[in-house]
Simulated scan of single mutants.
Amino acid sequence: MLLEKQKNWLRLALTPGMQFESFYGLLKAFGLPEAIFSQSLSSLMTVLPQSVALSLRRPPSLQTDEQIERILHFLSSVPNARLLVPSDEDFPKKFLMVPQPPLVTLAVGKVALLNKTTVSLVGSSHPSAQGEEIAKSWAGSLVRKNVALVEGDGEGIEKTTLKAAIKSNAQSLIIVSKNIATDSNFFEKSLFMSERGLLLSPIEMQNDPWPSRQRLLLAGVEHFVVIEASARSKVLSLMREAADINRNILAVPGSIYSPLSKGTNRLIREGAKLVESVDDILSEIAN
């Protein structure tokens, strides 16, 4: 992507007050960023609140300019780093099949991995020893199959799965990371993943990186496997969102006496597929 186009996408994404819905609305109404920036204030206000429309018409602030330059420097410094946007010819078809597709994503590595069947092991941020053992074992097996393993970089099941996949020398690993501005280890992760798989990170003007990170997971993952989850786990709300967009939800059953089985057992009652092995996962994927 040409430098000027990169700047336009970044400037749009980092406009103060810009929310996903407004950004998406602008793209649907006017097309690419260069066309958006040429619109009159009155035209922009048919999609945006007045305050955001005014911000878009003004030159970027010093802070926004610094953010843009930092990201552009990153793109020029890290091998296989790029912006992934809807106008790209290789924009993943999976991303186009969800109601809220990622709009500006920092990608490092092999974007083509998103064309594979994608699976994610998710669950409690404070798993039991048994839950961790399941995650390690299944991650080590799945990375040897013809699927791409997609993981967030949160605590618990996610971190255990990532470590096991990396230890197994996975070549089809996709990491969905926090925003470049909120992750102190982002540069090191990017260098590590540039030749080993794919790192994805959302670029949005958000104080809370959680929603945009979750949106990336929902867009990129076809099959979620919940290993452990309590009755109040954040994973349950993510799985309900995933089910709403026809993602396949699989869950590991557990003892009725275990708090970490309350969530997975509930998901199974609500229609998630019961799985007890990697073979079960692969069978469900095939079906």
Rank of each mutant, 00 (worst) to 15 (best):
E195K: 14
K93E: 08
E21S: 09
V278F: 05
K28T: 11
Q171L: 04
F187N: 07
G271Y: 07
I285S: 08
N248Y: 03
V111P: 00
E222N: 13
S230G: 14
Q214H: 13
G131L: 03
R269A: 01
F20Q: 10
S261Q: 01
V119I: 15
Q39N: 05
A165V: 06
N80I: 08
A170D: 02
F95R: 05
Q100C: 10
Y24L: 12
I249H: 01
E276K: 13
R70P: 03
S237W: 08
L27M: 15
V275A: 01
R213K: 15
L216P: 05
E241Y: 04
F74L: 15
Q39M: 14
L216H: 15
S230E: 10
N185D: 09
S55D: 07
D153G: 07
G25T: 08
P49N: 10
E228P: 00
T15W: 07
E284G: 04
R11L: 03
E69S: 14
H73L: 14
K7W: 08
A107Y: 12
K136N: 02
G220P: 01
N115R: 11
A139S: 12
A107F: 09
P33Y: 07
V85K: 04
S258N: 08
L250I: 06
A243H: 08
A170H: 03
L12R: 12
K94R: 15
K189V: 05
E151I: 13
L84S: 11
A13C: 12
L218N: 06
I249C: 02
V104E: 10
P202Q: 11
L267R: 02
D183Y: 02
F91L: 06
R213P: 05
R82M: 14
L282P: 07
E21M: 13
L62G: 03
V111Q: 04
E158M: 13
E276R: 14
V122I: 15
K234H: 11
I180K: 06
V225Y: 06
P49I: 13
S172D: 12
Q214P: 00
L173N: 04
L26F: 11
D90R: 13
K93I: 06
P202M: 12
E270L: 10
I174M: 02
V235K: 00
E21W: 07
I175L: 15
T161E: 06
E222F: 00
F95D: 03
